[in-house]
Amino acid sequence: MSILEKPNKNVEARVVEGEIPIQSRYTYGLAGEKFFREIMDKARILGTRCVECDYTYVPPTIYCERCFAKLEEWVEVGPEGTVQSFTVLLVALGGSPLDEPEIMALIQLDGADSVLVHRLGDVDLDELAIGMRVKAVFKPKKQREGSILDIAHFAPVED
């Protein structure tokens, strides 16, 4: 038996604390640059379409992952869509309770095949339902800065 298998009694547990001192800066890329600029400047949501696969990507991509074609056809989608699924969040990222519940949803925009993840707002928890119709609510133009948060949330569409 090696003495090393048992920590000597003068060994205290030692912990070295530290961090990985980095920040990340992400470009949006060829597709993202156009997508976010359109939202920022014109409050329009764009997708890219693969004719071969009959599939429209939102957020857009410059290629079809299904057939690997380069995608050059840009189409406007939404701003209305259908809730495919949702969850009601009561706890914040750090674990503390939220004052107001937050609703995250998968939204299939009209004209899109993929779904977009975003918040729902101006909605009664009682009326929440899969299949409900919602519409993008954009921030006022001068508050928009080329971010997914330029869409403040999606709100129910009045029938």
Binding site: I20, I22, Q23, S24, R25, Y26, T27, Y28, G32, E33, F36, R37, M40, G146, S147
Partner: peptide, 8 residues
Amino acid sequence: ILYTTWEP
């Protein structure tokens, strides 16, 4: 160009 940042 547009970009976004994040601190892990």
